[in-house]
C-alpha cells in the first residue's frame, strides 16, 4: 500500500527530528523497519540514486521516495518534513552554542554523540549490506568504494567512476 503525502510528511518529520548524526540511518529505520514501506534492497537502491544525483543525498533520497509513493506532493511533503523540524532546532541551538559551546561538559557530550553517530552509521551500513544480498562482485565494488573514500579520493570521481562497474555487476546478476 502506498503512503499518502500526509503520511510521508509525518514519517520524514520524525526522521528529521531524530536524525542525529545524519538522516540516512534514521530514514532507513523509519521506512524499512517501522513503516515497512520499502525493503532494505529498495531503500539501498533509492539511497544510491540519491547519492549519484548532485546535492544533499538525504534530501535527494526523500524526493525520490516521496515522488515514488505520492507524486510531486509526496516529494514536497517528504522534504518539508525532513528539513522543517531541524531548521527550528538549529536556529535555537545556534544561539545557545555561541553562549555555552566552550563549556567542557558540552564539548564532552558532543564528542560522545559524534562517536556514537559514527557507530550508528556503521551499524546501519552493515545491516543494509547483509539484507540487500549483494553478489561477490558487488561486495568487491563496495569495498573499493570504501577504500577510495577513506583514501580521500573526491566523491564525484568515486561515484562516477565506479557506478558503471556496479551497473555491470547488476547486469551480470540478472542474466
Amino acid at each position: 500500500m502506498n503512503p499518502s503525502a500526509g503520511a510521508l510528511f509525518w514519517a520524514y518529520l520524525q526522521v528529521g527530528l531524530s536524525g542525529f548524526g545524519g538522516a540516512n540511518a534514521w530514514a532507513r529505520r523509519m521506512l524499512v523497519e517501522k513503516r515497512g514501506w520499502l525493503t532494505d534492497a529498495q531503500y539501498a537502491e533509492r539511497l544510491g540514486l540519491g547519492q549519484a544525483l548532485p546535492g544533499p543525498n538525504a534530501m535527494n533520497t526523500a524526493i525520490i521516495v516521496g515522488h515514488g509513493f505520492a507524486g510531486v506532493a509526496g516529494a514536497a511533503a517528504a522534504v518539508l518534513g525532513l528539513f522543517g523540524g531541524p531548521l527550528v532546532i538549529l536556529a535555537g541551538l545556534a544561539g545557545l552554542y555561541d553562549a555555552y559551546g566552550a563549556h567542557p561538559m558540552v564539548r564532552g557530550a558532543l564528542a560522545g554523540v559524534a562517536s556514537a553517530a559514527a557507530g550508528m552509521m556503521l551499524g546501519t551500513g552493515i545491516k543494509m549490506a547483509r539484507k540487500s544480498y549483494p553478489t561477490a562482485l558487488m561486495w568487491g565494488i563496495g569495498a573499493l568504494v570504501l577504500a577510495l573514500a577513506l583514501w580521500r579520493v573526491p566523491l564525484p570521481w568515486i561515484v562516477l567512476g565506479l557506478a558503471p562497474f556496479g551497473v555491470f555487476a547488476a547486469w551480470l546478476e540478472r542474466r
Binding site: 544510491g48 551500513g125 561486495w139 565494488i141 566523491l155 555487476a169 540478472r174
Partner: peptide, 11 residues
C-alpha cells in the same frame, strides 16, 4: 541495483 554497492561503500 548497480548503485547499491556505491551507496553502501560511501555510507
Amino acid at each position: 541495483r548497480g548503485l547499491v554497492p556505491v551507496a553502501l561503500g560511501l555510507v
